[in-house]
Nucleic acid binder design. Structure first.
Lengths: 247, 247
DNA sequence: CGTACTATTGAGCGACCTCAATTGGCGTGG
DNA sequence: CCACGCCAATTGAGGTCGCTCAATAGTACG
């Protein structure tokens, strides 16, 4: 019998798995959908968050065209979302770290319009959309946070648009690294020692560059003393220096 | 005394201006925020839509950094939203036609993160955000439509991302023209005879191309028999031909 | 320790940009 | 009404940034 079933049969019962999953006990609470909710509202949200799901590296959380059932919140690991272009060309539209939400682009059409793939083995919380939408009507703070997160997603995409449309290759790379730095810091990690969860290819497909260009830029930045690279690990010499180069 | 004041003093009174503005009488009802609302809900929405505002060609509805107060629905005309890059570089993030919503990228931060400028003299409906958010809590259909429109915006931006990041210049142009065609058709206009509301510069700033490239592409498409151009008017020879070129 | 994948580096090319001159459209004032 | 001026659009010439193709080096994993 699944956790979900137990909950459906008797709302008060909370299994051990539930406790581990519960939003109220989650360290990402203040970065994720529950931001701003008080205790009773948190409990209500916990009621609908169905289960924790694990996606192995390279596995898909959902694929383009699949019917839209739920949003997903990243709990651990890292994901990427990508769009395809018939002949195999790929545009990565975002990398999602813990606390971030996947699937909101599908609300409109009831079908996923991108692929969501795990960059490394990841855990996500599944939030059934029907029930979330309903709950958002009852809990104003939840509606507010949902709207905020969707608006934030629009902002992130505009930002990326500006980068790809109007920045040179090196500006894009630096802006991207700076963004990773900020997001790591927000998660309580180092702002200068970045772990890249994705391949050079992915980075290129995100920034609208060839993977060779990404590699060359890493080398050049290293020569210029902006950073040091060792495989997936990048150390930023000086955030101020990078900020200055970005204007 | 403004319409808003009259309404605030006596909810039942409806001025002539209100009648003309009323969502229930608006031909764009089914393309805009009211989609799916029934009569009483429509009336409630009409209560909060503050007034009709006119923006002259080249005028700004709002500017980057200004505090966020309201969403705007385009009623007539055409707008563009753009982001800037310090040194003057511009990325246009969208063109908005009647029935489309402006401002949702600002919900997150309470500040507008782009400029909204009229491509030609336009009328917009102003929808105070505080009251809309509140009303969305009461009217499930309104919440639903708001979420759908925000999700749609995310989809449009992903689409543009894919175009700019992974398509060649001519593919971008064609995809853009095809998109304009579909949107004109949705408004009940011709799908083959397109009126461009924006300059070549704007088109370039939207597609991540130089204005000269846009101009050259128009000429080349014309040579190839895909379309004919006369200033702001473009006639698409065959939609099927264009679809085929887009894969 | 080999195998396969990922990353780096080099050489050459081409798409698109930049700069510049010309043409066309349109409103304004003589 | 026409001439002028202004701005938008077109077209040409040349340059460059980033891509493609290709070879090599490094790294993970059985």
């Amino acid at each position: 019998m699944s956790d979900a079933t137990i909950r459906a049969l008797s709302g008060a019962v909370i299994s051990i798995a539930d406790i581990k999953t519960a939003c109220r006990d989650c360290s990402l609470r203040e970065l994720c959908l529950p931001l701003g909710l008080d205790e009773p509202d948190l409990a209500a949200l916990d009621q609908i968050v169905k289960r924790r799901r694990t996606v192995r590296k390279g596995g898909h959380l959902y694929r383009m065209g699949e019917p839209f059932q739920a949003l997903y919140a990243v709990r651990s690991g890292a994901m990427k979302t990508s769009e395809l272009l018939g002949d195999g060309r790929v545009q990565i539209t975002g990398f999602q770290l813990p606390g971030e939400i996947l699937g909101i682009d599908a609300i409109d059409s009831n079908r996923h319009r991108c692929n969501a793939e795990a960059l490394e083995t990841s855990e996500v919380c599944e939030i059934p959309w029907r029930r979330l939408e309903e709950l958002a009507r009852q809990i104003s703070g939840l509606q507010h946070q949902l709207l905020r997160m969707m608006s934030g997603e629009i902002g992130r995409e505009s930002q990326l648009l500006l980068m790809i449309g109007k920045m040179s290759a090196d500006e894009r790379m630096l802006a991207c690294l700076y963004n990773f730095s900020q997001r790591q810091a927000q998660l309580g990690l180092s702002a200068t020692d970045i772990r890249l969860h994705m391949s050079r290819q992915d980075l290129g497909d995100y920034l609208g560059l060839a993977l060779e260009t990404v590699s060359r830029l890493f080398s050049r930045f290293q020569e210029e003393g902006l950073l040091t690279v060792r495989g997936k690990y990048v150390h930023l010499t000086s955030l101020a220096l990078i900020q200055r180069r970005l204007g």
